Computed example of a mutant assay.
Amino acid sequence: MGGKRTRMVNHALMSMTGFAERRGAGAGADWVWEIRAVNGKGLDLRLRLPEGIEGLEQAARAAVTAQVARGNVTLTLKLARGAEAGAPRVNAAGLAAALDALATVSQVAAQRGIELRQTAASDILILRGVLETGAAEEDTGPLLAALLADLDAALTAFNAMRAAEGQALAGVIAGQIARVAELASAARAAAEARRPLMEQALRDNLARVLAGAAEADPARVAQELALLVVKADVTEELDRLAAHVAAAGRLLAEKGAVGRKFDFLMQEFMREANTLCSKSGNADLTRIGLDLKTVIDQMREQVQNVE
């Protein structure tokens, strides 16, 4: 029953780990986007972005969170602006005002017979307001649009890597689920095989108790022994294991972030395996239970990588 379901591999299963780099140029700048991600319980997004580009942080955060549900993600932008961006610039209005002032000074000096030396361009450039060396007030909209277009491409590459790893994870997990199904079937067979031995052992115990205690109530003793049989029965545990196998197969075929659901399901798998071992009372069944715990623990390690 579980075998066919566990062979289904969801090609959309995503890993939480991934890396992508995207280089671009335009709008007077060169840049490199880098996206790195490792496992995390939730989404922890860290942005390392340059300042001075209005709307970049908000747009970048929205772009990543729209495509990533879990993981510790670091988004880095290395930006190199063109040389003209930081070069000194002549303020036309400041220059005009300075030249008007120099003309006025020259005119007044001439009227008073004062001879002034010839003014050099360097003398004018050092006047306040003529030369600007700070960042220019500019429209960063074109640069923002170019950066976000390349971020989309970087995210596409990032998700392609996560999907490839997710496909590999799905194959491994599917094999482990199939192995759990096989062990659960073997446990059911072992439980059936031990049944006659358990019943005979209980009959022998009942006979010994009744023979050694004349005052014992046979009905009461039989009732207590029947309770022991019920407590040793592993049918419910095996039925729940089969249900968990089916649920895991459905998760592999489910789209979207399923990592947390898998985390919870691994706890349920392990709970049934532990109970099976505690109730086995049989070497073969105990061995199968221990094998189950090993496979489930290995599967839990793989599930930690699923988004």
Rank of each mutant, 00 (worst) to 15 (best):
G2L: 00
G3K: 02
M14I: 11
T17L: 00
F19Q: 06
A20Y: 03
E21Q: 13
R22C: 07
A27I: 06
D30G: 11
D30E: 15
E34Y: 03
I35G: 04
R36D: 07
R36V: 08
R36F: 01
A37P: 08
L43W: 10
L49K: 01
E57C: 00
A59E: 14
V68F: 01
A69L: 02
R70K: 05
V73R: 12
T74N: 01
T74G: 00
T76G: 02
K78S: 13
A83G: 09
E84A: 11
R89G: 00
R89L: 00
N91I: 02
A92V: 15
G94S: 02
A96C: 03
T104K: 14
S106G: 13
V108N: 01
A109V: 12
G113V: 12
I114G: 12
I114T: 15
L116W: 14
T119Y: 06
A120S: 15
D123I: 06
I126C: 13
G129R: 09
G134D: 15
A136E: 06
E137Y: 00
T140V: 08
L143F: 13
L147A: 05
L148T: 11
D150Y: 08
L151P: 02
L151M: 01
A153P: 07
A154P: 06
A157F: 00
M161Q: 12
E165H: 05
E165R: 05
Q167M: 13
A168P: 03
L169Q: 00
A170D: 03
V172S: 02
V172G: 00
I173E: 07
A174V: 10
Q176P: 02
I177D: 04
A178L: 01
R179S: 13
V180Y: 02
A184K: 11
S185G: 14
A187K: 12
A190V: 03
A190Y: 04
E192H: 09
R194I: 09
E199L: 13
E199H: 09
R203Y: 07
L206R: 13
A207F: 02
A214Y: 01
A214L: 09
A214S: 12
A214M: 03
A216D: 09
A216W: 12
A216V: 15
D217G: 06
Q223L: 12
K231W: 10
E236R: 08
A243H: 02
A248P: 10
G249L: 04
R250E: 15
L251F: 11
E254T: 15
K261R: 15
F262Y: 14
F262H: 10
Q267H: 05
E268A: 06
E268V: 06
R271C: 07
E272G: 05
A273W: 07
T275K: 02
L276G: 07
S278R: 09
G281L: 12
G281K: 03
D284A: 10
T286I: 08
R287Q: 12
I288P: 04
G289V: 07
D291N: 05
L292V: 01
T294C: 04
Q298G: 01
M299G: 02
E307K: 00
E307C: 00
